[in-house]
Write a protein that binds this DNA or RNA. Sequence first.
RNA 1: CGCGGGGUAGAGCAGUUCGGUAGCUCGUCGGGCUCAUAACCCGGAGGUCGAGGGUUCAAGUCCCUCCCCCGCAA
Length: 316
Amino acid sequence: MRVVFLGTPEFGVPSLKALFDAGCEVVGVFTQPDKPKGRGNKLQKSPVKLCAQERGIPVFQPVKIRLDGVEALRSLRPDLCVTAAFGQILSQEILDIPRIGTVNVHSSLLPKYRGSAPINWAIMEGETVTGVTTMMTDKGLDTGDILLQRTIGILPGETAEELTARMAPIGAELLIETIRRLEKGDCPRTPQDEDKASYFPMLKKEMGEIDFRMPARKIVCRVRGLTPWPGSVFEWGEGEQIKVWHAEEAENPGKKPGAILSADAKDGLVIAAGEGAVRILELQAPGGKRMNAKDYLRGHPVSYTECRVTEENSHG
RNA sequence: CGCGGGGUAGAGCAGUUCGGUAGCUCGUCGGGCUCAUAACCCGGAGGUCGAGGGUUCAAGUCCCUCCCCCGCAA
């Protein structure tokens, strides 16, 4: 079977490897164009591109596949297209090309958490269970028929980064099972229940600004869900931005949100929230590396009594 | 050449402007106090100051080269 894989970040790599290892004829890989990234603005290849090149699979990087990638895809004459965090929307014209159709590996239990950041949102919403879904892609955004699903528990304190790493290989397994069953013709196919559907938007950098007026429990979930990108930050002193890598709930004796309840190497860093307080366990100052909050405080005495309380930002 | 911060004891930092015996907080080891302690008191060990070269009577500090780490922006 001729398969074309479309994916970009690390999440898609296990799926691509699995297709390859399962003996599928992966005739091409589509991924986002190399972009200048990191220090020095050097061009970076996506993880999926690197993986494809290692295996000698032709790589295509249209800026917008529905505009300048159609002919390339058609010429590959795929029986099946597989997407896993590709990052571009497919047009009907694209979807019509593969004989069998396009299977998407989505990292939530659809129809919940449609959208591009399902793992992050599931954690931010305080879920304890999520999962992966394989589905037939249609023109809508994550609205196609569900093929197979597998549930996965979210561990206490787990970050989006950790959960993503854990889910990617499971998604790959489910993908292979889906393809086997599609080949045999016994793959279940269930339309999504629109009444139970939920959609969550793309992550934006501003979402990382901690709003201390939220309940501590919520803040902690957001910190987990927004790791590693965009990360969670607060501001104190003269605009110094502190990135929070790890936090937990703590007691608040009744101070107003943003008040610094303690900031020393002995008691750690605790900041009052709307409900309860947030104990910051691991942080990162501008120019510095991430470190244990107490270590930070040992070398950086803090005299501020409060943090800046940011204005309302989208999705509390 | 996108902008910027940094590498000093096991950890986190100061010291670099204006060269002159390397310091702070914590940890660690030993001792003391205490019903007890992650608390307190006394004492000790522990550093090629990222690497190499240069200037100098003398370099963590000044000059040159290199390596590594990190933030922003994308």
